[in-house]
């Protein structure tokens, strides 16, 4: 058994046909860490999340979630993960309560436990008012909040947010980020927050830059800024790294 990091990836690779979606990725996230995964469209972020959630198997390498190998012990690994996918996974015809209860039962919570947790999480996010509303009638921001609430109901130790703010206005985006950061510290929750919007991960403990299936950088936002000469912001540092990787690619070709 691996050490009890919330997430530990060792040399993980994934290929689709001739496309190298992920190339020898290694990454560790400890409890209470908020890690931003920054990458442009097509960088390999979604593929990485598909491997972390067991939707795909990697071609090589190992993925350990809270000491459980996702391949050999997927049930234990998945019990420790909460996930908000890029694409909504809510049943639009069910109420908020219906969606949350469905998730609780799939995760093995008893009905009474489910009721309790749903009530307390809805209260925490100030969403009691929509409890019995069909999800279809909610705004995009509230739907995302429901997905976040749902991902926390079974008390995961690792929260995966796959471009969870897509389609949200800046205010809702900021509110979601702040919620997750506070949860991270309160509950010892490890968070992997994938995005291509740099502002969302300004407050992250670490920023991992992914491009063309490779990790280009893995350090704190401050250190990343310091390491990249003559850049004024994290955005510039990110673009600088991506452009540098492009140039390296051209030279190799």
């Amino acid at each position: 058994m691996q050490s009890e990091a919330a997430l530990a990836l060792t040399s993980v690779s994934k290929t689709y046909g001739t496309v190298n979606a992920l190339n020898e990725i290694s990454l560790t996230i400890q409890s209470s860490q908020f890690v931003g995964l920054l990458g442009q469209n097509g960088a390999g972020k979604t593929t990485l999340f598909q491997l972390l959630t067991g939707l795909f198997n990697s071609d090589s390498g190992e993925i350990w979630v809270c000491g459980h190998d996702i391949r050999r012990d997927p049930i234990a690994a998945l019990s420790s993960i909460g996930v908000v996918f890029q694409q909504s996974t809510l049943d639009l015809d069910l109420t908020v309560q219906g969606n949350l209860k469905f998730h609780c039962l799939l995760h093995g919570l008893s009905r009474s436990e489910a009721e309790q947790r749903i009530a307390s999480e809805l209260e925490r996010f100030d969403m009691q008012g929509v409890r019995h509303q069909p999800v279809r009638s909610l705004s995009g921001g509230n739907r995302r909040k429901v997905e976040l609430i749902r991902s926390l109901l079974h008390r995961p130790r690792l929260l995966l947010m796959d471009e969870a703010t897509v389609g949200l206005d800046p205010e809702s985006r900021k509110s979601l980020v702040n919620h997750v950061i506070s949860l991270c510290k309160e509950r010892d929750l490890a968070v992997l927050w994938s995005t291509h919007i740099v502002e969302e991960i300004q407050q992250a403990d670490r920023v991992v830059v992914l491009d063309k299936g490779q990790i280009l950088a893995d350090s704190s936002p401050d250190r990343l800024l310091a390491e990249e000469d003559s850049v004024a912001s994290l955005s510039d540092a990110f673009l600088h790294l991506i452009n540098l990787n492009k140039t390296v690619g051209v030279v190799h070709e």
Binding site: T53, G54, L55, P74, I75, A76, L78, S79, I81, V83, F85, Q87, S88, T89, L90, D91, L92, H103, L106, H107, G108
Partner: peptide
């Protein structure tokens, strides 16, 4: 198509 399948297949069940 609606993405719900992902929710089902990432549930901790065989």
């Amino acid at each position: 198509e609606m993405g719900l399948m992902r929710l089902l297949l990432t549930a901790p069940l065989p």
